[in-house]
Amino acid sequence: AEKTGIVNVSSSLNVREGASTSSKVIGSLSGNTKVTIVGEEGAFYKIEYKGSHSYVAKEYIKDIKDE
C-alpha cells in the first residue's frame, strides 16, 4: 500500500539512488514537498521521484499517511 509523507527540512533533502548515505545523490526535495512512499529499506523510504524510484532518509519525512 502506498503512503504519502511531507519533507520536513528547512532547506533541502537529498534524494539518493540507493538506501544508503553513501549512495549517489540524484536530486533534492525542498521542505513541505509531498512525497509518495512505495516502500522502506532500513533507515530510508523508497519514494516515487521523476518517474522512477529513489530513496530519502526516514528521519526527514513527517505526517505519514496511508493513501
Rank of each mutant, 00 (worst) to 15 (best):
A1P: 13
A1N: 12
A1G: 13
A1Y: 15
A1S: 13
A1Q: 13
E2L: 15
E2F: 15
E2G: 15
E2Q: 15
K3C: 12
K3E: 03
K3I: 09
T4D: 04
T4W: 13
T4R: 09
G5Y: 06
I6P: 02
I6W: 12
I6C: 11
I6D: 02
V7I: 08
V7N: 02
V7L: 05
N8E: 08
N8H: 11
N8Y: 10
N8S: 12
N8M: 13
N8V: 14
V9W: 07
V9P: 08
V9N: 07
V9H: 11
S10G: 11
S10D: 11
S10I: 12
S10M: 12
S10P: 11
S10W: 08
S11H: 14
S11R: 11
S11V: 13
S12W: 13
S12M: 12
S12E: 10
S12H: 13
S12G: 12
L13T: 08
L13N: 03
L13R: 02
N14K: 13
N14E: 15
N14M: 14
N14V: 15
V15G: 01
V15P: 01
V15D: 01
V15T: 03
V15E: 01
R16C: 08
R16K: 06
R16P: 01
E17S: 10
E17W: 06
E17N: 09
G18L: 11
G18E: 12
G18P: 01
G18K: 13
A19K: 03
A19S: 07
A19C: 06
A19T: 05
A19P: 15
A19N: 04
S20Q: 06
S20A: 07
S20M: 06
S20D: 09
T21M: 15
T21N: 14
T21Y: 15
T21E: 14
T21R: 10
T21Q: 11
S22N: 11
S22E: 12
S22K: 11
S23R: 03
K24Y: 05
K24H: 06
K24C: 07
K24W: 04
V25H: 03
V25F: 04
V25S: 05
V25C: 07
I26N: 04
I26G: 01
I26T: 05
I26A: 04
G27C: 05
G27W: 03
G27D: 03
G27K: 01
S28L: 12
S28K: 14
S28A: 11
L29S: 01
L29P: 01
L29W: 02
S30T: 12
S30G: 09
S30H: 10
G31W: 11
G31N: 15
G31V: 11
G31E: 08
G31Q: 11
G31P: 15
N32V: 05
N32Q: 10
N32A: 08
T33S: 10
T33I: 08
T33Q: 10
K34Q: 09
V35Y: 03
V35P: 01
V35N: 00
V35E: 00
V35K: 00
T36Q: 08
T36P: 02
I37L: 04
I37F: 00
I37Q: 00
I37C: 03
I37P: 00
V38F: 06
V38A: 04
V38E: 03
V38K: 05
V38T: 06
G39D: 06
G39S: 06
G39R: 03
G39W: 03
G39Y: 03
E40I: 07
E40D: 06
E40H: 05
E40Y: 05
E41W: 07
E41V: 11
E41R: 06
E41Q: 08
G42L: 05
G42N: 07
G42Q: 04
G42Y: 05
A43H: 08
A43D: 15
A43T: 08
F44K: 01
F44A: 02
F44R: 00
F44C: 04
F44W: 13
F44S: 03
K46V: 13
K46D: 01
I47Q: 00
I47E: 00
I47S: 00
I47D: 00
I47M: 01
I47H: 01
I47G: 00
I47A: 01
E48D: 08
E48G: 04
E48H: 09
Y49V: 02
Y49C: 03
Y49N: 01
Y49S: 01
Y49T: 01
K50S: 07
K50E: 11
K50H: 09
G51D: 07
G51L: 05
G51V: 03
G51Q: 06
G51F: 06
G51W: 05
G51M: 05
S52C: 09
H53W: 13
H53V: 13
S54T: 05
S54I: 05
S54G: 15
S54E: 03
Y55F: 11
Y55R: 00
Y55M: 01
Y55E: 00
Y55L: 01
V56R: 00
A57F: 10
A57I: 08
K58W: 02
K58G: 02
K58H: 02
Y60C: 15
Y60N: 07
Y60H: 10
Y60K: 06
Y60T: 04
I61S: 01
I61C: 03
I61W: 02
I61Y: 02
K62D: 14
K62Y: 10
K62T: 14
K62W: 10
D63C: 14
D63K: 10
D63V: 15
D63W: 12
D63N: 10
D63L: 15
I64A: 07
I64N: 06
I64C: 09
I64V: 13
K65G: 10
K65L: 11
K65E: 11
K65H: 11
D66A: 11
D66F: 14
D66M: 14
D66Y: 14
D66T: 13
E67N: 13
E67H: 12
E67W: 08
E67P: 12
